[in-house]
Design a protein around this nucleic acid. Structure first.
Lengths: 134, 134
DNA sequence: CTCTCTGCAAATTATTTGCAGCTGG
DNA sequence: CCAGCTGCAAATAATTTGCAGAGAG
């Protein structure tokens, strides 16, 4: 299976908790999960993994570039698989729903702005907080 | 003094801790301060204010629109006076330095994107993580 | 076998809240 | 006065860490 190679490439042993967590992120329909979400989902699936392990593994995955961590408003971080390309997020402030998008002109303008200031762009984070138009 | 009016307009009594915190935000050269930063600065200035009060007051100020809360990466929130207009941030990943900027074309494009999806823009958050070009 | 990993519980960090007393209008 | 405020300590919430045993290569 593909997952195992991902783990090996990251220099991580292929262990049960790691495979389960990776599969969970891969198969769930919910692209953005908090550590708690992953933990609960594993519990419900009958997998016996500690919450601390979920945090540790997600952090390792982030370091390995397998997942991306987002700090939306509201205190807790969410993770998503890094398999699709880069994109930004819109968060519906009423429902909490997360929508992904990318916009080339914004990306381009960001690079220009940074260069005008004499820096290089390492990363960026754009979140649009939105609401259904009534 | 101006501060007192700001507070009254917000429906908040003009109390010592509130005035001190507002002045601290106004006079410090560091535009972005965490609750802890404000607390320590007050201690050093010989003011006796509880950390809990700093949190409470900053939250009230945010609700009143006097300050803006930002959730940059790294676990803790920072606050800044809302006296200047809206702007976004660049954070130097090496030094931690924060630079403010605005860009009309990005702002405009954001609104367009949101509308294309049938939403209205409530707020947004853009942080560029940068590094000195070598 | 050995070194990495894991579970559990205890520790930290950031922030919030209950409550009895203080204070501004 | 007296409702709104404050300090302190205790309560939460999210995440991290220490440690002894389990498991991968």
């Amino acid at each position: 299976m593909v997952e195992n190679n991902e783990l090996r490439k990251a220099g991580l042993k292929v262990t049960l908790p790691r495979v389960k967590i990776l599969q969970m992120l891969d198969t769930t329909e919910q692209r953005h999960m908090s550590a708690e979400d992953v933990y609960k989902a594993l519990m419900e699936a009958g997998e016996d993994v500690g919450l601390a392990t979920v945090y540790r593994v997600l952090t390792q995955f982030e370091a390995a570039g397998l997942v991306v961590r987002h700090n939306f408003d509201g205190g807790h971080a969410v993770f998503e698989l890094a398999d699709t390309g880069h994109h930004d997020h819109m968060v519906d402030v009423d429902t909490g729903e997360v929508i992904e998008f990318t916009d080339a002109s914004i990306e381009k303008r960001q690079r220009e702005i940074v260069e005008e200031h004499g820096f290089e762009l390492v990363d960026h984070n754009l979140v649009l907080y939105i609401r259904q138009r009534k």
